[in-house]
Simulated scan of single mutants.
Amino acid sequence: MDGSGDSVVLEAVTRHYGSGDGRVTALDGVTVRFGHGTFTAVMGPSGSGKSTLLQCAAGLDRPTSGRVVVAGQDLGRLSERKLTALRRDRIGFVFQAFNLMPSLTAEQNVALPLRLAGRRPDRHTVRQGLAAVGLGERARHRPAELSGGQQQRVAIARALVTRPAVLFADEPTGALDAGTSREVLHLLRTLVDRHAQTLVMVTHDPAAAAHADRVLFLADGRVRDELTDPDAGGVAARMLRLEASC
């Protein structure tokens, strides 16, 4: 598996926690690839390994065995310093909690990853990022002056400011109402379709997963099923079948 044309490749990835009788297998020999410019949703029952898969794929956690390649870089061969630099420059993160700095404006929040990397933010680039998520007129507003959906849009703009090879989203609509969730998911879909952004999203919501190109279903640390061109009804049916078999 050379990973050519893929933004992320996991090859026979296993992750154990603990030892002896208390050892827990969070991932059990997972092999999967995420192609450039694709949108993949990851679903599964609680404890299925979704979060661990995301953390290993994003370089936040090192697998017990197996191989993870992101943007052509084998993460297992990188020092902690180089791994930190790769996460900062080539990987974007969006979480359920927006994690914005309350004392900073939207513009300053978006520019923060560049400042932390020791790079002087280009104001035009930052403003472009906010405009791309529909917040060009809210650059000087602080998080408390924005709705939940607008705050998540700022978080997405912040994640994209370094032009990452892949964007990982962990329940990005979990704190939003149904209407706002649809707006954010439409934005994520647009990033994939218009800008060839690679996107991997963990979700529990079949309606959210239906925005993806494919859905991976995990159970007991293994990929148990896959659905391409999903719709919400098909995703919900697969989840019911998966949960019944666990």
Rank of each mutant, 00 (worst) to 15 (best):
R222E: 11
P45K: 09
Y17M: 07
P206I: 08
A26S: 12
D213R: 05
E243D: 12
T52K: 02
H211G: 01
R238N: 03
L187E: 13
L227A: 01
V200L: 07
V126Q: 12
V110R: 01
I156F: 00
S46C: 12
R88M: 10
F168L: 09
A165T: 08
D21L: 11
R15A: 03
H36R: 15
R182P: 02
M101S: 12
A85E: 14
R189Y: 03
R67V: 09
L160D: 08
R224P: 01
R77I: 00
Q150R: 10
G22S: 13
A157W: 01
D6E: 14
L191I: 08
R127E: 10
H195S: 15
R120W: 01
D28G: 04
R33N: 13
G134M: 15
A165E: 13
T228N: 12
G149C: 09
S51L: 04
G22W: 15
D220S: 09
G37K: 08
L114A: 07
H186P: 03
L199E: 05
V166I: 15
L187W: 03
N99C: 06
G5R: 06
L54W: 11
P230T: 10
R67F: 04
D193V: 11
P63N: 09
L216F: 01
Q73K: 14
D89L: 00
G72L: 04
G233E: 14
V42F: 01
T64Q: 07
L54Q: 10
V184M: 05
L27A: 05
L75H: 00
L167Q: 06
S147M: 12
P121A: 11
P164A: 10
S147C: 08
L216S: 01
P230C: 08
T105E: 14
H141L: 09
E11N: 13
T105S: 15
P63T: 10
T190M: 12
H141T: 00
L53F: 14
E80R: 09
P45E: 14
A155S: 11
R15C: 06
G149L: 13
R23W: 06
R115D: 14
F39C: 04
D21W: 09
L130Y: 05
G29T: 10
M43W: 06
V215F: 07
R153E: 11
T228Q: 14
R241H: 05
V133T: 09
G234Y: 11
N99Y: 15
